[in-house]
Simulated scan of single mutants.
Amino acid sequence: MRAARTPVAGAVRRGTAAVFAAVLLAAGGAGCGGSDEPGDRTITLPPLPSTEKTSAAPPTGVVYKLSGDLCEKADQAPFADLYPTEDDKRLASTEKLCVTRRTSPDKSISLTIDADLLPTESAAKLFVETGRRLAKRPYTDVDGAGADAYWDGDKDDVKLTSYHGNLVLEVQAAVNVADGMPKDVVQRLVRVAEGTYAKLAP
């Protein structure tokens, strides 16, 4: 059995840092989101019931504080039915980053849950909006996972980004193309984000 392609923790952090740097520079006037040329590797996944852009949620006043092991707190249950076993040794496990692999008898999937604490809710909103503007892959807005949630991806890598209060969550699934991505991966990532926000809530 081949291991799923696993996002490298350092690369994840560097990507997040790049977006945050853009936020700090207030990169106003950046081009509209999504590439006009999706390319051959873009995967078409079923949308959630609402295909319209998610409206900005009113301020929640929730102030998150992170501590302990994110892998122990993150909600992996939405993938447990397809991939019941988690590897004993996680690739990354800190208070802000969880990179782990789940397997079934014939396939595997890598999950990355990246949590970023921002000083305020407005900073978290700007972080996500800037990431959308700078996205290198076509993206689709979705409802049900925090505020301003959107996903982008291809046949072996799908990521959901959203925020709630001052917390930004980037939840990513990666597989070998031969194993195939679950057709409802976006809905499962939405449920991971919802559950993780709930578990991390102060």
Rank of each mutant, 00 (worst) to 15 (best):
F127R: 02
V63K: 14
D152C: 08
V175C: 04
G165C: 06
K96I: 05
L97D: 09
A57L: 09
E194P: 00
E95R: 11
Y150K: 01
C98W: 12
K155Q: 15
T130C: 05
S104N: 13
D40Y: 05
P119T: 07
P119I: 02
Y163D: 10
Y163W: 02
T161L: 08
N166V: 05
A135P: 06
W151S: 05
A57I: 00
V158D: 02
R41Y: 11
T60Y: 01
D40K: 01
A198W: 04
E95H: 10
A193D: 06
T85R: 12
A11N: 13
E86C: 04
L45I: 11
D148A: 08
K53W: 01
T130Y: 05
P59C: 03
P38I: 07
G146Q: 08
A123R: 10
R90G: 00
C98M: 08
A30S: 10
V171H: 05
R191W: 03
D69M: 10
P202C: 08
E194N: 06
E86A: 07
K89S: 01
R2P: 15
E129A: 01
D156E: 07
A56M: 02
C32I: 02
G144Q: 11
K155S: 14
L70C: 13
D154L: 06
D40W: 05
P46Q: 09
T85F: 12
A11M: 06
A3I: 04
A174Q: 15
S67T: 15
C32S: 07
D184P: 09
V175G: 04
V177A: 15
G39P: 05
Y150L: 04
G39D: 06
V185E: 14
N166S: 02
L134I: 03
P46S: 09
E121D: 08
N176T: 11
V177W: 14
P49Y: 12
L91S: 14
F79D: 01
G153R: 13
A74T: 09
T60V: 00
Y163P: 04
L24E: 11
L66P: 04
K125H: 11
A11L: 10
I113L: 08
L97E: 08
K159S: 14
G195C: 13
T54K: 01
T161C: 02
V63D: 09
A115E: 13
L45V: 13
D36V: 06
F79E: 03
G10C: 00
G146N: 08
L134P: 04
A135H: 05
A9L: 03
R13C: 00
K65V: 10
L118I: 02
M1Q: 03
P46C: 12
A26V: 04
L48T: 09
E129T: 01
K159D: 06
A147I: 01
W151V: 09
A4T: 03
F127D: 12
K125G: 09
A147G: 13
T16I: 15
L118M: 15
A27W: 13
